[in-house]
Simulated scan of single mutants.
Amino acid sequence: MSDTPLEPPKIEFPCPDYPIKCMGEASAGYREAVLNVMEIHAAGFNIDKVSVRDSRKGTFQSVTVFITATGEEQLQAIFDDLKKLPETKMVL
C-alpha cells in the first residue's frame, strides 16, 4: 500500500460527453433555468441527452446535461452559475 495521496484523474480538454448533474428543489422552471446556464457556457450541447429525474416524493429534481468541456474555467463558471440558482442544492 502506498503512502502517496491519491490525486483526482486529470481531464483532457476538450472532453466530449462530460456530465454535469444539478440537483435542486422541484419547480416548474428549474429544468429551463439549468438549461439556460448550460446554453450560456456550453452552447450547442445535445438537448436530446438531457435527463430529468424527480425524487420519490417529487420534492427534488435532478437535471443531467452532457457537454463538451473546454477547460477548467468553463467548468468553474458553470458550477458557479448553477449554484446561484435559488432551487439548487448540489452540483456534481
Rank of each mutant, 00 (worst) to 15 (best):
P14N: 08
D80G: 03
E12A: 11
V63R: 01
Q61H: 14
T68R: 07
K83P: 00
S27P: 08
R31A: 14
P16R: 00
A43L: 11
M90H: 11
D3A: 14
Q74N: 02
I20G: 01
T64F: 03
A43P: 07
Q74H: 06
S51Y: 04
N46D: 15
I47R: 10
T59N: 14
P5Q: 06
G44V: 02
F60R: 10
K83R: 12
E39V: 09
Q76M: 09
L75Y: 12
I67G: 03
V63D: 01
C22T: 14
P16T: 03
C15H: 12
V34K: 04
S55L: 02
L82N: 03
L75C: 09
Y30V: 02
D48L: 07
T70E: 15
L92A: 09
G44C: 07
A33K: 15
F45K: 00
V65E: 00
K21P: 00
E25L: 15
L92D: 08
M90I: 07
R31C: 12
P9V: 11
P8W: 11
D80C: 05
A33D: 15
I47E: 12
D17K: 04
E87A: 15
V37M: 10
S51C: 08
D81Q: 11
D48M: 07
F13H: 06
S2H: 14
K89N: 03
R53V: 06
R53Q: 14
D80A: 13
E32M: 13
A43F: 13
H41I: 00
E32W: 15
A42Y: 08
V52H: 04
A43M: 09
A42I: 03
G44N: 06
S27Y: 13
C22Y: 01
S62T: 12
A33V: 06
T68A: 13
H41F: 05
Q61A: 15
F60W: 14
L92G: 08
E12R: 09
L82E: 01
P16M: 02
F79E: 04
D81V: 06
D54T: 08
K84R: 15
P14W: 11
F66E: 07
K10I: 12
F60G: 02
N46S: 08
Q61M: 14
Q76Y: 09
E12H: 10
A42S: 13
V50P: 02
K84Q: 10
Q61G: 12
L35S: 03
A42Q: 05
K49Q: 13
